[in-house]
């Protein structure tokens, strides 16, 4: 037996030893076309996905969010997700304030409640449309703590170490910025940052610190976890991190 392939025989009428002109290199052509098509999809995948999102999102909802297409992806940076204990959790507001605060979960819920429906954008390219948030406008928290005149920014510290990020006071005063404790009409779930997270729809989600436990007012805006990895401080959707308008 010469070989196992049976195709190296010189007189084979069908094997690979046909004259070059008669060979059909569909294999390598197909391979190259697929790779090229796949690489160009890095450009067209976004628009196509946005076109398909209403369909896939409906399907995902119907399947109980089993399919994340058009749904959420959960990012954590540490080993485990923080566990929310309503008895011990506190929202500390400190730094450059007149009256430092330590609010319990119940205290937070007693503040005037705001609701909104907004779209969540992740910097990695996925979005969730029409998210119903419930929570507290930052102004109500600031009214309690009374920032000192030199305060310009808030550093949000997560229960998930070392996750933190910051927003300027102007940014947290945008009309649809809030500290959310409800999503879709129910208390915020653990993967979404229970019990409270920052929501600022104009910016990519990495600015929306989850599992918030401390707000610190500062005179200068510090770099957070993602900024230290090269992401933009001002994460405007469509105008930052290399995205063009």
């Amino acid at each position: 037996m010469k070989t196992g392939t049976g195709t190296v025989k010189r007189d084979s009428p069908h094997g690979t030893d046909l004259p070059e002109a008669l060979q059909r290199h569909y294999g390598r052509r197909g391979f190259l076309l697929l790779v090229a098509g796949g690489l160009t999809s890095l450009v067209w995948a976004g628009p196509v996905s946005r076109f398909l999102t209403p369909v896939t999102a409906a399907g995902s909802q119907a399947l109980g969010n089993l399919l994340p297409v058009g749904g959420w992806r959960i990012y954590t940076i540490s080993g485990t997700m923080p566990i929310f204990d309503p008895a011990s959790w506190r929202l500390e507001i400190g730094g450059l304030v007149e009256r430092p605060q330590s609010l319990s979960y119940a205290d937070l819920q007693k503040l005037p409640k705001a609701e909104q429906i907004s779209t969540f954008h992740c910097v990695t390219g996925w979005s969730v449309e029409n998210v119903r948030w419930g929570g507290v406008r930052f102004q109500h928290l600031l009214d309690l703590a009374r920032p000192l005149p030199e305060a310009t920014a808030i550093r949000f510290v997560s229960l998930e170490q070392p996750y933190e990020d910051s927003l300027t006071l102007d940014q947290v005063r945008l009309p649809d910025a809030m500290l959310a404790y409800e999503m879709g009409g129910t208390p915020l779930a653990r993967p979404h940052g229970a019990p409270a997270r920052v929501v600022l729809p104009e910016m990519y989600g990495y600015k929306g610190v989850k599992w918030v436990t401390r707000m610190e007012l500062l005179s200068r805006q510090p770099n957070g976890y993602w900024e230290r990895n090269g992401y933009d401080q001002d994460a405007w959707v469509g105008h930052s991190n290399g995205y063009q308008a």
Binding site: F31, V43, G125, N229
Partner: peptide
């Protein structure tokens, strides 16, 4: 072809999360 494309997009996902310079739009999709 899938192996090649998985490797390329995967590389950018891995590095893009560590360093913004490697973040490639739509690599995740």
């Amino acid at each position: 072809a899938l192996a090649v494309l998985f490797s390329i997009t995967g590389f950018f996902l891995w590095y893009g999360e560590r360093d913004h310079a490697f973040r490639l739009q739509n690599a995740l999709l």
